[in-house]
Amino acid sequence: MRIVFLVAVLGGAVFYSYIAFVDLNFLTRTGRLGPGFFPRIIGVGMALTTIWVILDALRDRARVAAGGAAGADDAPAGSWGDAVKLIALALGYAVLLRLFGGFVATLIYLAATLSLLNPGRHVQNALVAVLLPIFVYILFDRLLNANMPPAMFELLPF
């Protein structure tokens, strides 16, 4: 998985460099440093360093396959399932926000997330799922006069 992430970073670095070289000028017409000066240095530097890191990671992998100790950069053992679950729920929340606005989306998200992460404690979950959206609504919308995400499909009268 680490290699996949590093390759994704390398892909980003190559794409960034491509635009820096193709779309952005190194110097302006008056001979000053152009908009491409910094991006070219950054892009090339990022691509080269990432390649170096990938080579290190591949060497580490070969060493581990040969029975050596895991490298210092290897990810510590953990639960992918729980992390992925939380990420997926968070992304679902992002979609709900667009559809139903800040208050309703938060209520649905909390109810769904807590029932998955904190199963069996229905009263506790229901209380948190209702009270927290009310608290953030009062804090952001009423006290701070800040923006709450508007709904595409309005379910509430306020």
Binding site: Y93, L110, T113, L114, V128
Partner: peptide, 22 residues
């Protein structure tokens, strides 16, 4: 497990409140 979802909510609504930008 209760703090986690609450943090997601605060982060999300806090970010949106800055410039009202999805």
């Amino acid at each position: 497990r209760i703090l986690g979802p609450a943090v997601v909510v605060i982060c999300t609504l806090g970010t949106f409140s800055v410039n009202a930008s999805f």
